[in-house]
Amino acid sequence: MILRRIVYAFVLLLAVLVMNFALIHLAPGDPVETLVGEMGGATPEFIEQMRAAYGLDQPFYIQLATYLGRVAQGDFGFSLYFNRPVLELMFHRIGPTILLVVTAVLIALTLGTFLGVLAAQRRNSWLSHLVTVFSLVGYSTPVFWVGIMLILVFSVALPIFPIAGMYQSDTSATGLAFLLEVLHHLILPAMTLALIYLAFYTRLSRASMIDVLDSDYVRTARAKGLKNYLVIYKHALRNAILPVVTFAGLQFGQVLSGAVLVETVFGWPGLGTLAYDSILRRDTPTLLAILFFSASLVIVVNMVTDIVYRYIDPRMRAEQ
């Protein structure tokens, strides 16, 4: 079962590689011309020379085959812009992105579920209606706008949080102090990224919880004389959380793409800003590597979700 999933994952990754490569080649714009443009112009001979040097004069399928062969060996090539290995460039950027995305998902999941459970228990209370309104607003607000508004309010009007970056550029803090500094910088971007999913998970867990609270087994739990918190957080929530977990896994890819926007707005030094800059610079190898990495991450997260799901829902285990 697990083995079959891994084989599928590899097939999927291969498809991702080919699609990305093809899409970028179909897109308008020529990396060499962008490059020489930034150098301040060049003779047609020099441009041809550069094309040959990067192998860009070869037909598409030869380029694709060469690319796949290199990736198979773990070689993602050199950045056209920085002229450094792509992996080295990415290496420093992965940590901040994962920190941002994981924090945002954790905030959205825990806070969203908690609010949903609270709202479900008193489904006609003002709190419940407030949660509904909040989640509709949160769900329909663009991420970049939320980011800019948060900066305006909490960094400009009330200077509580820094405007951008992951730490002060001239920081001398180490150890715990450095950690706190990063945390201080993390709050606004993480909240921005979390907001839309927070709204979604609140709605989802509220609806799911309302269903479960009406179920026969919750009535059984009450009839046993269990304390209310056990009925709610053990018997009901363990069941209500199942669709939330499914969606959290499915939406991970969206969170990752949301991170590109948030990182750009907040100058967060992650893969998102690198991806954004690489698009502007026509830095194809870097872009391809980032896309490949994000796709792998999404696939891995989905597999993990499946495994977690199997753990929390015994009925899934039986179907193996």
Partner: peptide
């Protein structure tokens, strides 16, 4: 204590 009508749904599946 109480026994309900629906044995299929009265026990918690997890």
């Amino acid at each position: 204590s109480m026994v309900f009508q629906e044995p299929m749904t009265s026990l918690n599946p997890v």
